[in-house]
């Protein structure tokens, strides 16, 4: 799918320029400038102050904790996301719109409220809090609470990414596999997973970015214990409030960089994905592709 083959039905040159200009101008104002401002503040005290801020034990422990939580929630997000997408994309049943809405719901709950909600359950004055306290199990103001809250806010991403993809792919390939006698699991690992693997990764990467960057919800259940339950976004806020702008923005820039790392990963993923589809397109004549649908 090269650009030249599209020339016949592409926009006139001036319009293309206007669109590119508009799109890039918008991104520049809303994304690039803020990013630039973050780095400008971070390097306000020079390179050495920047490094110094990041080498601080509390900063290192915050980075470690943030990465740990992000990695920990991955398998849960993958499993739940695939299950939800499989249910919704491959079957028809009553209440499907309701189910999709419930999956969207975590997006709409204010982070402020997410934390509060889990305190209502696990907090010392909450529904199950006293039971956990009696058994000496720490949920909130400790790692488990922070993980649960992160699971809540990242739940929707994988499913939301997979549903349109799986719907577009339809059921034919899987149905063929089953009718040829494949078991359910075999069908899943041989047919479904290869089809959705790149979309899955895409969802995971988005969820990952959100897991690392979340402040509001995690803040409520973290307890803010330095070097222990402080994640990177919490560390940023606390440094800022203490009039340590360089430290705060240096930590924030690390988050931006971590996002860029996942974005590089995503770029590679997308590139691979494109290569695969191109190979597929090349292997099958267009008519075959259309007949297959």
């Amino acid at each position: 799918m090269s650009t030249s083959s599209r020339l016949a039905n592409s926009e006139p040159r001036w319009l293309r320029r206007v669109l590119i200009g508009t799109g890039l101008g918008f991104l520049f104002l809303f994304l690039a400038l803020p990013l630039l401002a973050v780095f400008a503040e971070a390097f306000n005290g020079g390179w050495s102050a920047y490094i110094e801020a990041l080498k601080h034990p509390e900063a290192l422990s915050a980075i470690g904790l943030t990465l740990f939580i992000a990695v920990f929630v991955l398998p849960f997000n993958i499993l739940a996301g695939i299950a939800a997408a499989w249910t919704i994309a491959k079957f028809d049943f009553r209440g499907k719109s309701l189910l999709i809405t419930l999956i969207d719901l975590p997006f709409a709950v204010s982070p402020v409220v997410v934390g509060l909600v889990f305190l209502l359950i696990f907090g010392a004055q909450g529904a199950f809090g006293p039971w956990f306290a009696a058994h000496d199990i720490k949920v909130v103001f400790a790692l488990p609470g922070m993980i649960i809250v992160t699971l809540f806010i990242t739940f929707s991403f994988v499913a939301r990414e997979l549903i349109p993809l799986m719907q577009a792919q339809g059921r034919d390939e899987e149905e063929a596999a089953i009718s040829l006698g494949a078991s359910g699991w075999k069908m899943f690992f041989r047919v479904t997973l290869p089809n959705i693997k790149w979309g899955l990764l895409y969802g995971v990467i988005l969820a990952n970015a959100r897991a690392m960057g979340e402040f509001g919800a995690v803040s409520v259940v973290s307890g803010h214990i330095r070097g222990e339950t402080n994640t990177l976004p919490l560390h940023v806020e606390i440094l800022y409030n203490e009039y340590n702008a360089v430290g705060a923005f240096a930590a924030a820039s690390v988050l931006a960089l971590l996002a860029l790392v996942t974005l590089v990963a995503k770029t590679i993923v997308e590139w691979q994905m494109r290569k695969e589809t191109e190979m597929l397109d090349a292997a099958l004549p267009p008519e075959a592709v259309r007949n297959q649908e």
């Binding site: 305190l119 907090g123 010392a124 004055q125 909450g126 809090g129 306290a133 909130v140 103001f141 803040s219 409520v220 307890g223 803010h224």
Partner: peptide, 12 residues
């Protein structure tokens, strides 16, 4: 006040 709420909710 966020801190004392946390203490009431079980921050030790």
């Amino acid at each position: 006040s966020k801190q004392v709420r946390a203490v009431a909710d079980g921050l030790e």
